Amino acid sequence: MSIRTSLGFSRRHLAQAVGAALALGLTPSWSAASTDPWPTQTLRLVVGFPAGSSPDLTARALAEPLAKALGQNVIVENKVGAGGNIAADFVAKATDGHTLGLMINGNMTIARILNPKVPYDPLKDLTPISLIGKAPLVLTVPASEPGAAPGQTAAEWLSQARKAGDKLSYASPGVGTVAHLGMELLKTKAGIAPVHVPYPGNPQIITAMLGGQVQLALLPPAMSAAQVRGGKLRAIGTSSSGRSPVAPEVPSLAEIGVQDYQLEIWNAVTAPASMPAAVASRLSAVLSEIVRAPEMRARLFQQGWQVVGSSPEGLRNRIQADTQSLGAIIRSQKIETN
């Protein structure tokens, strides 16, 4: 998967982002009773996955231009565990008025459906700010598994995987993540039967595939790109209905015979429910300005994301739609936490 883009965020577009923030009057109060301008201190952008993971890379790409637009430092904090739910709960319970989260869709949609004991309610305890980017997942395997041969097609690989049954294992970043739900649905749609092995994040999954501990995974497009280009991993197909702009050389799974299968991942910036609507709206506008600037759009595209930059209302609508669709997968596949 080769994606050619330019990197960096130019001074000109940083200046545009700052100007947009000023034009929007970005001096709201976090508390309705307070007259202090916001933000008044360093902001934390919390990520639920390890350094080097896809959410972490997106958060770190946003941190510097967001800091310049708001006039305060933005630091990225990794709070790893429970498929990102530890970080989501931390953000939901934050009271300092300066904590944001870079969340994946699972944390914002079906966390409570999957496990009623999750200590936060994504629909009630988190404020949607902006949908940053979306992408399909890519079914990725070691280049030599199972029974790979020079010139072997993706359809031929799928045939081998069906014969292998539960002798194969697949990795995900945790029970209840979209990659986990997506693979359980794929097992039904594609007639394969790999065993689930959860890992802390996608970097660890790639290491495990390269080491032969697991044989397949649904990964964000950019996570395995270097290893695919180097011939160590292989991209079998994407979870999109057709070929995706972020990986146009990879067939969709529908092209190789997996019917009625479509799934997207996305990431978004959120805040505690205590954030007033006016602050959320203005912060959303600044983030949208930042991610839609050409250089940042290219940088996020290189990470495997189609930029969105939505309003809070747009993100809320996506949350509601995915809560229904992912919830349906949980119920149909009888997925539950232990």
Rank of each mutant, 00 (worst) to 15 (best):
S288E: 10
G257L: 01
S239G: 06
P272R: 07
T207W: 00
E289S: 12
A208W: 09
N267A: 10
V286G: 12
K232A: 14
M209N: 13
M209W: 09
G231M: 12
A280E: 01
W266Q: 12
P272Q: 07
E264K: 04
L287Q: 07
L218R: 08
T238A: 15
A226P: 01
M223P: 00
D260H: 09
A222M: 06
W266V: 02
P245K: 06
P245M: 10
I206P: 00
V250W: 00
W266H: 12
E289T: 15
L287K: 03
I256L: 13
A254C: 02
V250P: 00
P272I: 03
N202F: 13
D260N: 15
A254H: 01
P220K: 04
V286H: 07
A226Q: 12
A217L: 07
R243V: 13
A226V: 11
A225W: 04
A285N: 04
Q204V: 02
A208I: 05
R229F: 07
A254K: 04
A280P: 01
G237V: 03
V214C: 10
Q213W: 00
Q204T: 13
N267L: 11
I206M: 13
Q227E: 15
S274H: 05
S244A: 15
V214T: 15
A271N: 08
Q259C: 00
P251A: 07
P220E: 10
Y261P: 00
V279F: 05
P203A: 11
K232D: 13
L287C: 05
G230M: 11
S284L: 05
R282K: 15
S239E: 04
A235G: 05
K232E: 13
S224E: 06
G231W: 14
S239D: 07
L233E: 06
R234T: 01
M275F: 14
A273E: 08
S281T: 13
N202V: 15
Q215D: 12
P272L: 06
I236S: 01
G230E: 14
S274L: 11
T207G: 09
A247I: 11
S239R: 02
E289C: 10
Y261Q: 01
A273C: 05
V228A: 08
P272V: 08
I206A: 06
A280F: 02
D260F: 02
L233F: 09
L216D: 04
V250Y: 01
A247D: 14
K232P: 02
V228C: 11
L287H: 02
E249G: 12
S241R: 10
A271R: 06
R243E: 12
P251F: 02
Q259E: 08
A278L: 09
